[in-house]
Amino acid sequence: MKYNMSIFKTMTLVFSFLLGQTVAFGAYAEGLKVAVAGNFYKPLLQIAAQYHQDTGHRLLISTGSTGKLYAQIRNGAPFEFFMAADQVRPSQLVAEGMALADSQFTYAQGRLVLWSNQNNLVDQQGKVLNNFQLPYLAISNPKTAPYGAASVTVLKNLGLYQQLQPKLVEGQSVGQTFQQVSSGAAPLGFVALSQVYVDGEISHGSAWIVPSDLYQAIKQDAVILKKGEGNPQAKAFLSYLQTPPIQALIKSFGYQVNE
C-alpha cells in the first residue's frame, strides 16, 4: 500500500490559501506536517491560524479517518504529528516505535450527534431513528473511523441496528459522512458535534446530541511521530495545544477538555 500524496497536497494547498500565501512542503522551517482526524479538521484550521499569528510557524495539514491516517503513517507518510480520534492508534504507534511515548496526551473528548440538514427532521430525543421508512442513514466506516464505531454502538444499544443496517451508507471518514448529509445525499447521519456546533448551539438543520451513556467515550489523543522527533516545532505545538486559550477554543466546538 502506497501513501496517497494527492490527498496531502490538496489539504496543503487548501490551508495555504487560507493563510493567504503558498506554503512549501519540506524543511522544518516551512511548517509542521500534521495528520488530523476528520472530526477535528475545522477546529485545527482555527488553531493553526492562531498558532501562525502567535508564533510565525505554520502547520501543513492532511485529514482523513484515523484508521486510514494510521495506515499511511505505518507505510511511510511524512507526517510529524498525529491527532487521532481515538487513543488506540496513537498507542499502537508508540508500541511500534513510530511515535514518542512521552508526547501522547488526550487533547479532546468528542461527542456524537445525529444530524440532518433539514430543519425539522431530527427530534430532540432521536425518535426519528424508529422511522424505518427513511431511505438512508449515514455513518462513517466503523472499521477506520472511531465516530463510525460509536454510531454502531448507539444503534445496538437502542436495539435498532438489525433494522437499520440495510439502510446504512458509510463515508470513509466522519468528514465525508458530514458531506453526505450536508449535500442531501443522505437525509440524516451520525457526525461529530464539532462539525455542526457554533457558539454553543447547533448551527443549522436539526439534531439530537446522543447521550454519552449510549457509547464509549471518544477520547482523542495526539502524539509526536518519530519523523517529527528532530523538529522543534513538534514539541512547541504539543505545548501550545495544552494552553488555556487553545483548550477554550477546542471546548467552543463542543468537545470536552481536561480542565
Results as ranks from 00 to 15, higher is better:
1 M>L: 13
4 N>G: 12
4 N>K: 11
5 M>K: 13
6 S>K: 14
6 S>W: 12
7 I>T: 14
10 T>P: 11
19 L>A: 12
20 G>W: 06
26 G>Y: 13
29 A>H: 15
30 E>S: 12
31 G>K: 05
35 A>W: 00
38 G>R: 02
39 N>T: 14
40 F>P: 04
40 F>N: 03
42 K>G: 13
44 L>K: 01
47 I>Y: 01
47 I>E: 05
48 A>Y: 06
50 Q>W: 01
54 D>T: 04
56 G>C: 03
60 L>D: 04
61 I>P: 00
63 T>D: 11
64 G>M: 00
65 S>H: 00
66 T>E: 03
68 K>M: 10
68 K>I: 10
69 L>P: 00
70 Y>S: 07
77 A>W: 01
77 A>N: 05
80 E>N: 03
81 F>T: 06
82 F>L: 04
82 F>R: 00
85 A>V: 01
85 A>T: 02
87 Q>V: 05
93 L>M: 10
94 V>C: 03
97 G>K: 03
99 A>S: 04
99 A>L: 05
100 L>E: 06
101 A>C: 04
103 S>R: 08
106 T>K: 09
109 Q>I: 02
113 V>Y: 02
113 V>E: 05
113 V>L: 10
114 L>F: 03
117 N>E: 14
119 N>H: 09
123 D>C: 12
123 D>V: 12
126 G>N: 02
127 K>T: 15
128 V>A: 08
132 F>Y: 13
138 A>E: 03
139 I>V: 09
140 S>M: 07
143 K>D: 14
146 P>D: 04
149 A>W: 00
149 A>P: 01
150 A>C: 02
150 A>S: 04
150 A>R: 00
151 S>T: 09
152 V>N: 03
154 V>T: 01
158 L>C: 04
158 L>A: 09
158 L>N: 07
159 G>H: 08
162 Q>P: 06
163 Q>F: 11
169 V>Y: 10
170 E>V: 15
170 E>A: 15
171 G>C: 07
171 G>F: 02
171 G>P: 09
176 Q>Y: 01
176 Q>T: 11
177 T>K: 01
178 F>H: 03
180 Q>R: 13
181 V>N: 05
181 V>P: 00
187 P>G: 00
192 A>H: 02
193 L>P: 10
193 L>N: 07
194 S>T: 05
196 V>L: 13
197 Y>V: 08
197 Y>K: 08
199 D>F: 06
204 H>F: 15
204 H>I: 12
205 G>Q: 04
206 S>I: 10
209 I>T: 09
213 D>T: 08
216 Q>D: 14
217 A>G: 10
224 I>A: 02
226 K>R: 05
228 G>I: 04
229 E>Y: 05
230 G>Q: 06
231 N>E: 05
232 P>C: 00
236 A>K: 02
237 F>N: 06
238 L>N: 12
246 I>T: 07
248 A>R: 10
251 K>I: 14
254 G>T: 04
255 Y>Q: 12
256 Q>A: 15
259 E>M: 15
